[in-house]
Simulated assay, not measured.
Amino acid sequence: MNRLIRYVFKHKNTGKIETKRCYLSQLETNPTEALAPFVNNSNYDLISRDLCFDEEKGVFVGDLIYVNNWFGNYIASVKFGEYDQDGSGDEYGPSKCFGFYAEAIDPTGTNEDGYVIVPDYLVQDTMLKLESYKRIGTIYENIEQREESK
């Protein structure tokens, strides 16, 4: 499987964020060409290397997504690794899982009726189960949105 990877670089003087996407096969055949001019440039720092979850929507680990669900809408961060998954509605204890998941930025947010939008058992939810989501940026591009949602 040829995985898409996003590299995020930060310019040392300006703080400007630059991204470069390339497939693993590109890195294996021409590593310096795939990431030039950033790798051989002392003006940039590599700040993130992210796997792609959804190529069609351009969603990578580290992205912020706007999730629509039946309890309400919320903002989540896409992550990869081990997480607790509990789709039982607290009927059973959570299971340890590994893979791509969305973690709610503000798990205590409520809707206009005062109900919690993200129940405890959905704070960390597999990306495969999300019915509707939209990429809104990265944690590097949308710092203000991330802070507002806390």
Rank of each mutant, 00 (worst) to 15 (best):
M1D: 10
L4Y: 08
R6Q: 13
V8S: 13
K10C: 04
K10L: 01
K10A: 04
K10Y: 01
H11S: 01
H11W: 01
K12M: 01
T14E: 10
I17T: 03
I17F: 03
T19G: 05
Y23W: 14
L27R: 03
L27A: 06
E28M: 07
T29C: 05
T32Y: 12
S42T: 09
S42F: 07
S42H: 02
N43F: 03
N43Q: 05
N43R: 02
N43V: 00
Y44L: 00
Y44E: 02
L46C: 08
L46W: 01
L46K: 06
I47T: 05
R49K: 12
F53W: 11
F53I: 05
D54W: 00
E56Q: 08
K57R: 12
G58T: 03
G58D: 04
V59P: 05
L64S: 04
Y66F: 12
V67L: 05
N68E: 11
N68Y: 11
W70R: 08
F71W: 15
Y74G: 01
I75V: 15
A76N: 07
A76W: 10
S77G: 14
K79W: 01
F80Q: 07
E82M: 08
D84Y: 10
D84W: 10
D86T: 13
S88M: 11
G89M: 06
D90A: 12
E91K: 11
E91Y: 06
Y92S: 11
G93Q: 09
G93W: 11
G93T: 04
S95I: 07
S95P: 00
K96P: 09
K96S: 15
C97W: 02
G99Y: 03
F100N: 06
A104P: 12
A104M: 13
A104Q: 14
T108E: 15
T108M: 13
G109R: 08
G109I: 13
G109F: 03
N111V: 09
G114K: 11
V116Q: 15
I117G: 12
I117S: 10
V118F: 14
P119Y: 15
D120I: 15
L122S: 13
V123W: 09
V123M: 12
D125K: 13
T126N: 15
T126C: 15
M127H: 08
M127S: 05
S132R: 09
Y133K: 08
I136G: 03
I136F: 04
I136H: 04
I139Q: 02
Y140M: 04
N142A: 12
E144T: 07
Q145A: 14
Q145F: 05
E147R: 14
E148F: 14
E148D: 15
K150F: 15
K150R: 13
